[in-house]
Structures are given as structure tokens and as C-alpha cells.
Design a protein around this nucleic acid. Sequence first.
DNA 1: ATTCGGAAAATTTTT
DNA 2: TTTTCCGAAT
Length: 739
Amino acid sequence: MTGPGSSGGGRPTGGGRKYTLKRPPVSRSGGLAYEDELNPQQLDVVMAGGGPLLVIAGAGSGKTRTVTYRLARLVEDGVRPESILLLTFTNRASREMLHRVATLIQYDVRRIWGGTFHHVGNLILRNHSALLGFGQNFTILDREDATDLVSDCIRLAGVDPKEKHFPKGRVLESLLSFSADTDRGVADAVMDRAPYLADRIAEVEGVAEAYRTRKKEIQAMDFSDLLTQTRALLAGHEDVRALYQERFRHVLVDEYQDTNKIQADIIDLLGGGHKNLTVVGDDAQSIYSFRGAHFENIITFPDRYPGARLFRLEANYRSTQPILTLANASILHNRRQFKKELATTRGAGPLPALVPCREVLQQADFIAQRILELSDEGIPLSEMAVLYRAHYHSMEVQMELTRRGIPFEIRSGLRFFEQRHIKDVTAFVRLVACPADELAWKRALKLLPRIGEATAARIWNVLRAQEDPLAFACGGGAEIIPRGARESWEVFRGLIADLAGLGRPGKEGGGGVPLPTEMISLVLERFYESYMEAAFDNAPARVEDINQLAEFAMQYESPETFLSDLALMGSVAAEGTAPGGTEAPEESVVLSSIHQAKGLEWRVVFMIWLTDSHFPHQRALADPDGEEEERRLFYVGLTRTKDDLHLCYPMLESDSRRMGVFSRLSRFVSELPEDLYERWSLEEDTAPARGEDAPPQGEGGPPWEVESPKKGDSPQRTLSRPADPDEPDGLRYEYDDDF
DNA sequence: ATTCGGAAAATTTTT
DNA sequence: TTTTCCGAAT
């Protein structure tokens, strides 16, 4: 039997197929047998009554399990599910927790309010937006929309971008949202984040003002607004606040260490009456300060809530002791923290490996080969992950895995819903659902030939003046279209007419307005597919994406819900589409940024690019607290590992001009005692590849190959084993084992 | 005045 | 790989 906290228990490992149907452990009284399933620390949290609770939950200490059981316990004790609010950091977390509660108890847990702050804020705001001067169907600006709008505002504010480079929309947008998320003035944020702009603060504030105005005009909220407006609503309207305080009798917050000031205020407002507030977090895993995460929230919780009870979960069910020892030693270098020492319940295991590689290509080579070997040993691919600081660190690994046909799944970089073609198609849904959506109209219009920025703006000016822009657009309006665009305009307006359900009498009896999924198919067939064929060289792949989007849209009946969920959807394609349904169809290795990996675990973990300037990242070090946050990030990466940890780094990297440059091992590794890990050394198999199908790369190699990478003062002993005849041009790695 | 094509630049982390 | 900037063409 698996202990508490361990995930998937009865996974079949051999060839045979054996299913273990787990049934909820039930006590004699008919309820859940909590004391059998939880350790004493966890049990305390689950059984604790109301009032403010602070739970410091170390990595791998069964936090999700504890929260899940607490939710179940509340419901079993007669708390109505709809009066529970569960606030999480990602959509995935809330889905997972609620799903797990559902397997524990019979009640309909879908009635529990659960989701991210942004999601819940959105739901609340839709009901009361008029109080804030917004209509009910305001649109949500994602990062790109917001950036475009800020760019507009820079022009609008009449700033001359040429004289002393004024920041681009992208930079300014992140500055403004940082200012909002940290609840500080624009000037403050500038001094902190972009001191080089000190003498242009007035201009930045001008842009910020214009941005605020524009958002009101076009009835839009960006991500930060979803939080600040929710707070404003609750703080400024006593009746609304009372309504939600009454509705949510219990509030549970996950990842409390990563909440920002606004989020903490929202929690305080919601929990202000009854104070049945459970906040769970780990200060050592606070890694979102760039997004405004406010460390103080968790530190000062006991002060803000006198009488709050403090719980600690320090038993780690995930990792072997060598991994925890390493992680504990690492985090010890941080000054600001609650001292805590994670201890394993699992016992000993192999030492973590430090793997110096010649350069990134060899790093990728090593990882691919090692993955294959571990796979041969029976470890499923889905139990292995490659973790990195920044998305582009994964490029070489991606290429190598592809080359060897190892299936993998990427959890970083551009999210599915942010890709250009996805946003193009959804623009059509947006403008039909909300004909006042200026950004959507312009985006769609600019897809037509001979229509660019200027013409799109002109057309919009005509449209906005209409009583019913949709009908007008469909009715004609050809006068305002430039000659060169007339032909495609006909297609365009026919499409809009059908999307709006104006063209045809509803044949599925639904009144003629198509469902979101139908709209997407329609846009694809009638217009966008041919557009893509002309515009992209990988059109078929993108058609596939859009079909997947249509698939995803099937679960929605109203375009409005579809659109807001889309905007708030952080996850990548594969998830979200199948909640609880079919599992991943194919076993695959996970490639993930460490940020995305938080809360997850694998038997085998490779952390790559561990050189100073990549990890810790150069740019993060500019901030005085940057190093500690980077170290926490490193700590998060380490503690994802159950059994086998590989710390990899290239000894040579190329700088911007393709010059070979020695890299320095990350300080996060070099500051650790050397007996906590073992050093492997890679040897290229020098035997010539058999046959003439020699490596296509040629043997010339990069210029730095001459320089032997045997630097470093620690003498390394390599035990060469006889070459494996089955592995012709493989890489051999050996390690010092001091017996 | 606008659009469009090619060249150059830029990539930390996320709701 | 995608966005942004700039000059040529319409």
C-alpha cells in the first residue's frame, strides 16, 4: 500500500496489465477514514475547525492531499459545497484538487467555487461590472492585446520614441502591470524596475493615463484589472462585499506565498467576516516576485490575523534523502526564510549526479541517451522530465529528442491559445459576440489584403458609429473599402453574416446563431484556411491547431464564456481539453520550465543549463533580491525529483558572435558541499561509427574542440568500461564511485 | 498616404 | 520562430 502523499499507487510496471481499483477508505461510521490516510500533522490541518489557519507546507509534504481532504471533511461535516471557495494559482491546480475531492466523496463538488483569482474575479465582476462603469460583457485583454493597446497609447500620448529610446509597448506593458500588481504608483515602479527612465516618468504616466482611458473606452480589462477591479468592487460596495462574505463560508487559498498585494486584499475582504480562512504555502517556493508576489503576505499573516493557528508539514513523501539533503543545503544559503528541514519518509537513494557536458549539443545528447537507457530499465517516459530556467534552453534537447524519435511534451514557451493563428480565428468570435470590440475588428480586418493599420482604423470609425455594426458590415458598406480589397470584402461580410446568424434561418433550431465551435469551423473553411496557405508555410499544422480549438470549444454554448475562459487559460493544448477524460494517449517525456513544474513530480529529473548567467539568469540578478529568488527556483527544481537527479551544464557556450566562451558552473551548485553529489564525466565514444553512414555533421566539429575541457581543479577519476557493442556512436558516462 | 516585402532583432519566468 | 522596423512600390 502506498503511503499518504504518494501519487498513483498501483501503476503496472511490467508487461502484464493489472488494474487496481482504489476505493475511498471508509471508516465504520460511513465517513472517510481520515486518520488512516493522513499523518498526524496533516490530520491536524484537516480536522481543524474554522478561523484563520496558516499551513506551511514543505515541498512534497502532501499539501494537495491535505487540502483535498480538508475540503472533503468540510463537506462531510455539512458545509454546503457552494459555500466553499478554493483559490489557486493555476487552473490546473484547482481542477486537480476538485477532481480528487470528487473521487473521495459522493457530493457534487462542481458546486464548489474553485479557480484562479483571475477566474473568480472575472465571475464576480460580470455580475457587478456596472458599479465600476463597465458593461457586463467587457472583454479580457491578454498579454498581447494589452501590449498592442499600450503601443497605441504611446503614439496617442505623443511621446517621441526616437529621442532617447523610449521603451516599446511590450516593456511598458509589463511595467504597468507590475505597477498594478504591486499596488504601487507608476513612478515607483519605474524607479524600481527601470531606473533608466527616471527622467521620463511624466511621459510614462501620460501613457499610463491614456491606457486607462482607452481600456474604459473599449470596455476591456487586462489581467491586473481583473484583480484590482475585484478589490475595488469588494472594498467600495458594502452590500456586494456582504453578499460574497455570506456566500463563501470557507475560503481556502493555495500557494499563498505567491499571492500579490491585491490578491491578499481580496482574500482579506472575502474572509473579513467569518475569518474561516485556510492559507497554504511554502515560503521557500516563492518564485513569482516578477509578477508582484508579495513575500510579506505569508510572513505577516499571523499578525494580520491574531489568533491564527500555524501548522507545519515537514515530512516529505516524494524524494529520497540525498535529494532532500542537497535541497536543504541549497536553500540554507538564503537569508530570508522560515527555517525548516525536510525529512524523507522514503529513505536512501542514489546521489544526485553533476554532469559537465562539453557544450549544449553534448548536453542534449547525454539527456537523450540517458532517457533511452532509463526507459529500457523500465521507467516510463512520463516519469522523466527535463527542467530549465528559460524556454529557449530547451531547444537543443527538443531537436535531439525529435531526431531519436523520443516522444516529448513541452510545458513552456508560447501557450497554445496565444499563438497567432488561434488569436486570428478567435477575433471573429469576439467581434460577433461583442460588436463593440475594437481590437477584434481591427485584427480581423487587417487579415484582408490591401487593408492595413490605417484603413482598418478608418473602417472601424465608420462601424463604431453604427447602431448595429454587424448588420451594417453585412449589409454592404463597400464604399469605404479600397478597390483592391473589394473582392475579399465580399467573402468577409458573407462570413460575418453567417457567424452572426443573420444570413440563414437557424437550421438547428437554435435561432440561427452558431455555437462557438461552429463559428470556428466556419471561419476556417470560408476564409482563414486559404489565408494561412498564403501566409504560412506550415499551414496544415495550423489547421490542425484550429481544429483542436474547435474541439475545445465544443464544451461551450455561449461565446462569452468561451472567450473569457480562453483568455484566462494558461495551460497548453493537451490539458484542459480532457479534464478527467482520456489520459495522455502516449507516454512522453516532459520538457518544462521550472515555473511550470511547480507542484509536479517525476522519478527522474534533468536540470539543464546550470551555468552562472543562465541559472541564475543574468537579468534576474539585477534585482537585489534576485539571487534569493533564483535560488528558490533552483530549490523548486530539485524538489521535483523522486529518485534520480541529474544536474547538467555545458562547459562551453557561444556568445552572441558565435565565439566559444568558457561558462562557469552555477553558483547554486558550486556553493554546495561536494560530497552531496557525485561528478560524472562524459566520454565521447571515439570508435569510428561503423559503416559509411557517418555523422552528417562531419568530424570537423566546433572550433573549441581543440581546447580540452578538462578544466576545474577537482581531479576526476573515470572508470572506463568496455564499449557497448550495441551502441555504435553513443556517449558513455561513468562516474566516480568511491567504495 | 499606405501597404507590403525583406531584413534585423529579440527571446525569463505567467494569470 | 515571430515581431518590428524601414524603404520601395502602389
